[in-house]
Design a protein around this nucleic acid. Structure first.
Length: 102
DNA sequence: CTAATGACCATTA
DNA sequence: ATAATGGCCATTA
């Protein structure tokens, strides 16, 4: 477990239900404004290695800056249904910008 | 050590 | 609107 990865978790954990954020936002939050890509990588790997923690980290609430869903280890389909279940409005595979916190 | 790999992003065409 | 491009960066091979 690296320091960077740890920080990413902490940041993502704080995203409340019914709210969505972006990879770039998390990157800024952990003090590495240009590490958006690395954030995505970290989340993916964590899901495999630390499954017990993956339940505490709402990684499905992290999407791309343009509102498109981005990736998800179990498929974007699953990501979509999780978000809808939380009351997030999604139009044509894009999260309504109203729900995205920057 | 270097090279490759992405759950990314902004810009350009 | 989509597609290609170049940059970005932590992690892994």
């Amino acid at each position: 477990m690296t320091d960077f990865t740890e920080k990413v978790w902490q940041a993502v954990k704080k995203v409340p239900r019914g709210e969505v954020t972006t990879y770039g936002y998390i990157a800024r939050k952990v003090g590495k404004p240009r590490a958006a890509r690395a954030v995505g990588n970290a989340l993916k790997r964590n899901l495999y290695r630390d499954m017990h923690l993956s339940k505490e980290v709402p990684c499905h609430r992290v999407v791309r800056t343009d509102g498109s869903l981005g990736g998800f280890a179990r498929g974007t389909k699953e990501k979509l249904s999780l978000l809808k279940k939380e009351g997030i409005k999604i139009i044509d595979n894009r999260v309504d910008s109203k729900f995205i916190v920057n």
